[in-house]
Structures are given as C-alpha cells and as structure tokens.
C-alpha cells in the first residue's frame, strides 16, 4: 500500500465555497473562450433581448401619457429595477433554471457522488456567461431609469434601491430553486413556472397596483413581488414617506427559507426514487 498518497485524513483543510465557485466560474470562462466569436454574438443578442420590452413601454406612454397615476419616468425606474433583479437572479441561478436537463441527463447523480453541497455544485455547473450580456443591458436600463426618474436621491432612497436589488434577486433565485425542486418530481409541464419568472419580469415592468387588488394580495403574501417592487417604489418616488416601505425588500429574503426547505425535501425524494 502506498502510504504517500494516503491523505484521507478528515482534518484536512476544506477549500472554501467561494473559492470553489470562483474555480467553476473560471472553467466556464475558459470554455466560452474556445468559441469567442460565437460567445460575443450570443452575448450581444442577449444584450438586445429586453429592448423590445423597453420599446413597448415607450410607445404605450407615447400614446397614453401615464398609467393609473404613474408617469413614464416612474414606470421606467420600476421596469429597470425589476429587469436588473431578474438578470442578476438568472446569472446566479441559471443552474436551477436549466435543472431539468441536469436531471434528464443524469448529471445530478454525479453531483451526489461529490463531497460538496448540492446547491453549490448545481450553481457552479451552469454559469451562462452570455447572460451577462442581458445583465449589461439591464444595467444600462437601470442607469437610464435612475437618472430619468426625477427622484431626489438621498441616503435612504439609495439604500432602498440597493435593498430592492438584493431582495428581488433573492426572490428570483428562490423561484428558480422551486423550479429545480419540481424537476425532481416531474420533467413535464413545468412551463407554468414561467409565469412566476418570465411573467414577473414581463409584467413587473408596471407597478403591481395596476393589475388590481387580488394581484396585489397574491404578490404581497404568496410570492412577495410587491415587497421588492410596489411598496419600496412608493417610497422612492415620494408617494409615501414611510421609510418602512423602503425596508420591506429585506422581508422578501425570508422567502428563501421555504425554498431551501423544499429543496431538501426534493433531494430526499430524488434519492429515494432515483429519477
């Protein structure tokens, strides 16, 4: 027996999750560099992807002037923040968003044979760098939205925008995670989850109040979109002086807890059925 190579001592130093994630990232970076031109084209396409949404808003306001008391610049701020949250969530949690393929190809088995947390591995497995093109577009829109919103910026409002981004990104990550959990149970018919992800991005461009009371209730208590969109927006544009509204996005972070518990249940189910 070769003792030189026998280093399975439990006390050995564990590579940190962050460093490992960085390593995954660098692998993805090196992968796309194999197809530079193709990567740049796709990233550019992704950069333009949300442009249609912006044009839609622009022409609707060109015709109607305002919607339910919200001006063009206010909606623009709302839209750009939501888009940035979604894009960030997608950059981080793309592994969950494409998890059906991972289950279908049996790659999750491989994840389970490795001594790291499954979530870390799934996130690292799929980092689609071309999506950063979309994020770049969202950031451009964000800069445009913030500067044209007519908001007088103070420390509290800047904090609110930051919290909106944080809470919203977490919210989208949580929903992608739920999508991944469902993949453990079925690979068919998960399309309806698009309503909660793409639908939220698409229709979250307008303040949720325009969709009526019932939608507000759903987005406050069930999937807390309103906590990262409508209420803090009221504080940002000076419609409300209640600073608590600006802090509500923090509450949306709690949404991740049930998502994580569901994930645990899903993994246990997968390990008992193997499919």
């Amino acid at each position: 027996m070769n003792s030189k190579n026998d280093m399975n001592t439990p006390s050995r130093h564990k590579v940190s999750a962050l460093r490992l994630y960085g390593h995954y990232l660098s692998i993805h970076l090196r992968s796309v560099m194999q197809y530079k031109a193709s990567f740049l084209m796709t990233a550019f396409g992704q950069f333009l992807v949300s442009f249609n949404m912006f044009l839609g808003i622009y022409f609707m306001f060109d015709r109607f002037g305002s919607v339910e008391g919200f001006s063009y610049s206010e909606v623009l701020l709302c839209f750009s923040v939501m888009l940035t949250e979604y894009s960030l969530g997608e950059c981080i949690a793309r592994g969950f968003d494409t998890f059906d393929g991972m289950v279908r190809r049996g790659e999750f088995d491989r994840v389970l044979t490795r001594p790291r947390h499954e979530i870390l591995q799934v996130l690292g497995h799929k980092i689609e760098l071309s999506r950063f093109g979309k994020l770049a577009q969202a950031i451009v829109m964000f800069a445009y939205g913030v500067t044209h919103s007519g908001v007088t910026w103070n420390a509290g409002r800047m904090l609110t925008v930051f919290l909106m981004l944080l809470g919203g990104t977490a919210l989208f990550c949580g929903i992608f995670l739920i999508y991944a959990v469902l993949c453990f149970y079925t690979l068919e018919g998960l399309e309806f989850m698009n309503i909660l992800t793409d639908g939220a991005r698409e229709y979250g461009k307008y303040p949720i109040s325009i969709y009526g009371k019932r939608m507000m209730q759903f987005c406050t208590f069930i999937i807390p979109y309103a906590l990262v969109q409508y209420y803090p927006l009221l504080y940002l544009i000076g419609r409300s002086d209640n600073f608590l509204y600006g802090l509500l996005p923090l509450l949306a972070l709690l949404f991740l807890i049930p998502c994580y518990l569901l994930w645990k249940v899903g993994v246990r189910h997968y390990r008992s059925t193997g499919s």
């Binding site: 590579v15 490992l20 692998i27 591995q121």
Partner: peptide, 13 residues
C-alpha cells in the same frame, strides 16, 4: 482543468 477543479471539490492538498 477538470482535474484541478476536482482537486478543489475534494479539497486534495
């Protein structure tokens, strides 16, 4: 490159 990633996944010195 795959090997080096595995090195980090398994925390091999």
């Amino acid at each position: 490159d795959s090997f080096e990633l595995l090195r980090d996944i398994y925390s091999v010195p």
